[in-house]
């Protein structure tokens, strides 16, 4: 049976400090290889641990734009009708392939005139270290 995710459909459903359902991104090497094939990035740093290590990385890393895609997916899972206006990220450390990560999001601003919400987004690894953080602005129906 599919997991039931609480969703919002209008800006009136949103509260300051409200948490988005946590999101577990697929950071497997299969996922980054598929992504690489689709976007034409078959560089070892994203698709091969040994090749990435030869480039001085601790292992293969998830492309930044793929992480941003996870953030967008998370927002749309929470608010399927939302129009994402911006996703603005700061990459503090690599998101390592084949290592579990969690994405959390919380609403940190609501503009009822513009029908927009601002969401803090944080990608953490199993140790709880922040790897990526940022904010997104999304417009919701009235």
């Amino acid at each position: 049976m599919a997991e039931s995710i609480p969703t919002v459909t209008a800006i009136a459903d949103v509260e300051f400090g409200g948490e988005l359902p946590a999101f577990t991104p697929d950071t497997s090497i299969d996922a980054t290889r598929r992504f690489g094939q689709h976007v034409g990035w078959n560089t070892p740093r994203f698709t091969d641990h040994d090749g990435a290590r030869k480039e001085g990385l601790p292992g293969a890393i998830v492309p930044g734009v793929m992480s941003q895609g996870f953030l967008g997916a998370m927002i749309h899972r929470w608010a399927p009708t939302a129009e994402i206006i911006t996703i603005d990220t700061v990459f503090r450390a690599p998101v390592l392939v084949d290592q579990p990560h969690k994405i959390t999001g919380v609403v940190t601003d609501i503009d009822e005139d513009e029908l927009t919400v601002e969401i803090d987004l944080t990608v953490t690894n199993e140790a709880g270290e922040t790897r990526v953080f940022g904010t997104a602005t999304a417009r919701l129906p009235s």
Binding site: T108, E118, D120, T135
Partner: peptide, 17 residues
């Protein structure tokens, strides 16, 4: 340059949470 927080929202967050 890499800050994304408005000071008013910091205040709201501290009090709300």
């Amino acid at each position: 340059d890499d800050g994304r927080a408005k000071v008013r929202n910091y205040c709201q967050w501290v009090r709300t949470r």
